[in-house]
């Protein structure tokens, strides 16, 4: 199983002016594996994700794709490797309709002309959009008219549309309802079984426990431990996130995992 990881990060650093957001980050993700990236607010999770997707390239460090060092300087670079992302914010164009957003940047064309019918047909088959199409199949409304959860679904649909080899998700369930979250976690299971490598950022340790194989903890922009999720307790991860074994959070959260689910 210790094959070459799809993505390996070595010594990734990123600085915003005076803020050192990431310092010497190490991370590996294999095909068919879900790695959860956890950490407190401001730990640098979103920054790391943006370094992987080329939205905010790293200042220093080595990114290896299937064992080969690559440069990811722009979003296109990451897309060409087969990386797709769902971001925490600013991910959709409100004036475009759902189909327009789903295919933005990789539209289907016929003889140079947008093939709206083909795009809409594919859109209707996308599973995360079932939330939109369940009651009234309408993928032609502007995204501005959608609820936060529906937008989240569009963003997720957009990411899996390109059949990525690595899917990176920044708090994708934050706006989702109970049923939609469950469907989403099922979808993650299935993508993993199909061999997709998945990096999941979440504050919800219940979700992490439900789907993740590994958990990588970030703290103040540095690695703060790797855990094998099934054999790790809630408290271990929490104390690694907060940097203390004995504080308010760990005391509150001493229940075993099973009760949490």
């Amino acid at each position: 199983m210790s094959s070459t990881p799809v993505l390996a990060l070595h010594g990734i650093c990123k600085r915003f002016g005076a803020v050192q957001a990431l310092t010497d980050i190490e991370l590996e993700i294999h095909a068919g594996e879900v790695v959860a990236l956890v950490g407190d607010n401001g730990a640098g999770k979103s920054t790391l994700l943006k370094a992987i997707t080329g939205v905010g390239p790293a200042d220093a460090g080595v990114i290896e794709w299937c064992g080969r060092p690559v440069r990811i300087q722009r979003p296109r670079d990451a897309q060409e490797l087969g990386i797709a992302g769902v971001y925490q914010d600013l991910a959709l164009c409100e004036n475009l309709d759902v189909v327009g957003n789903l295919f933005l940047g990789h539209e289907i064309t016929r003889a140079g002309v947008l093939d709206e019918v083909a795009m809409e047909r594919q859109a209707l088959e996308l599973e995360p959009l079932a939330i939109l199409t369940k009651h009234r199949p309408n993928v032609r409304v502007p995204v501005a008219t959608l609820s936060a959860g529906q937008r989240q679904s569009v963003a997720i649909g957009r990411a899996i549309l390109s059949r990525p080899r690595l899917l990176v998700l920044d708090e994708p369930t934050a706006a989702l309802g109970i049923e939609q979250t469950a469907q989403f976690l099922d979808l993650i299971d299935r993508l993993r079984d199909q061999g997709t490598a998945i990096m999941l950022i979440s504050h919800n340790l219940g979700d992490v426990k439900a789907v993740a194989d590994q958990a990588a903890v970030l703290r103040h922009g540095r690695n703060n431990g790797f855990f094998d999720v099934p054999s790790t307790t809630h408290e271990q991860i929490v104390s690694s996130i907060t940097g203390a074994t004995d504080n308010a959070v760990t005391q509150r959260a001493t229940k075993p995992w099973e009760d949490m689910l």
Partner: peptide, 19 residues
Amino acid sequence: AKAAGRTAGERRATVRPGG
């Protein structure tokens, strides 16, 4: 982990087909 994931998955609501 996968097995655990699937058991957890079974407890979740089943996925509805698209519209």
